[in-house]
Simulated scan of single mutants.
Amino acid sequence: MTRTALAGTAGTEPPARFRDLLAAEWLKLWSLRSAPWSLLAGATAVMAFNVGAAWDRYRYWDASEPGSRAGFVADGMPLLDAFTANAALVMLLVTGAIGAAAITGEYGTGLIRTTFAAVPARRSLMAAKVCVVAVVTTVFGAVVAGASFLLTQAILGGRDAGVSLGHPGALRVVAASALLAPVAALTGLALGALIRHGAATPVACFAVLLLLPAAVQENRHWTAVLDHALPLGAWSRLVAVQGFPHGPYPWTVSGAWTVYAAWALAAVVLAVAAVHRRDQ
C-alpha cells in the first residue's frame, strides 16, 4: 500500500509552471558562452558603423554643396546616419545567429532530450524559449538603436545638423531598427527548430535574411513585392526619409510594420509547431 501511494503521488506531480519554464530558458540562454560575446560584439559593430558614418559627415561637411547643407535637416538626412544599412545587416546577422543558437545548442549537446523528458509540454517549453529570446533581443535592439541615435546626432550637432528624437520620422527610425533584432532572432529560432543543426541553421538564416534581399531588386513589380515582404526591405521603407527616393514601386509605412508583425508571428507558430509534431 505504501509503494502504491508513493507511485500515485509521483504520477500526479503537477506540471511545471510557465514562470519556471521562463526561468529555465533564461538560464539556458545565458549559459551559452557565445550569447553575451555575440551581443557585445554585435553592439560594438553596429554602433561603429553608425558613428563612422556620422563622423564622415562631420569631417567632410564643408566639402559638400551649400544647397545640400541648407536642406540637410529639413529633408531628414541626419536620420540616414542614425542607423545605416551596414548596421542593419550586422543586426540581422548577429540576432539571427543568437536565435538559432538558442535551440540548436540543445540539439547539438543532446540536452533537448532531457528537457523534453522533464517537461513533456513541448509547446509550453518552446513558448517560454520564444518569450526569452524575444525579450532579450528587443532590449538589445532598443539599447543599440537608442545609443546609435544619441551618438550620431551628438556628432552631427557639432555642425548644427543633429536632430532630436522629436524630429519627424526619428522615433520611427529608432523603433524600426530596434525591432529588427527580435524579428531576426525569432526567424533564426524557427529555422533552428526546423533544421536542428548547429552549422546548417546559421547558413539558412544568412541566406533568408541577407542573401535573398540582395538577390531581388525594385525595378520590377514582382521582385519589388518580394523585397517589400522581407524584413530588410520593410526596415528600408521604415527608415526612408523625405529627401530619399523610394523606388518605382513604393511601399507604405503601415505595410512595412505589417511585414515585421507577420514574420514574427509566423516564426513563433513555426517554432512551436515544429517541436510539437516532430520526434527529437
Rank of each mutant, 00 (worst) to 15 (best):
A101W: 11
H167W: 12
A101P: 00
A267L: 04
R278K: 10
A10W: 11
A88M: 11
I103L: 14
M1E: 09
D56M: 14
S34D: 02
H167V: 05
L150E: 11
I98L: 15
L39D: 00
T152V: 05
G166H: 02
R277E: 06
W61M: 03
W61K: 09
W235A: 01
G255S: 04
G52L: 11
A261Y: 02
V174P: 04
M47T: 15
P182I: 10
V136P: 01
M77Y: 14
L179C: 02
A200S: 08
F72H: 13
V144F: 00
S254L: 13
A176S: 08
C131I: 12
A118C: 04
E65Y: 11
G110K: 15
A181K: 06
A184N: 04
P231S: 07
A100I: 06
V94E: 02
T223I: 05
V90Q: 03
I195P: 07
Y249D: 01
T115N: 04
Q153G: 01
S164E: 14
A45I: 15
V163F: 00
Q242E: 12
P66W: 06
V90D: 00
L171C: 06
A74S: 04
W37H: 04
S164D: 15
A204Q: 05
A273C: 06
S38L: 15
L150M: 13
V143C: 10
D62L: 13
P248V: 03
T44N: 07
D20M: 07
A24N: 13
V268N: 02
A82Q: 06
V163P: 00
A240Q: 14
A184H: 05
Y60I: 08
T115W: 01
H228C: 00
G247V: 08
R33S: 11
A142I: 13
S124F: 04
S254V: 13
I112K: 13
L80M: 14
A63N: 13
A127W: 09
Q280L: 15
P182R: 07
G105Y: 08
G247K: 09
V144P: 02
A181T: 11
A207E: 01
L211A: 14
K129Y: 07
L191G: 03
V216R: 05
A193W: 01
L171T: 10
T138L: 10
M77W: 15
A74C: 03
Q280Y: 09
P248Y: 09
A101Y: 10
P66E: 09
L6T: 12
H228R: 10
A214D: 05
T258L: 15
K28V: 07
A154N: 08
A185R: 04
A176M: 07
G243I: 15
C131Q: 12
R33G: 11
L179I: 01
A85H: 13
A121L: 12
A273R: 14
S68W: 13
S148H: 06
L186S: 06
T252G: 03
W222N: 07
A74V: 14
P231C: 06
Y260H: 12
V216D: 00
A147C: 09
G105N: 13
A35T: 15
F83I: 02
G169H: 04
D279E: 15
L270Q: 05
W61A: 05
D81I: 06
A240I: 11
L111C: 08
G157H: 05
A45P: 05
K129V: 02
A117V: 14
V135Q: 00
Q153L: 00
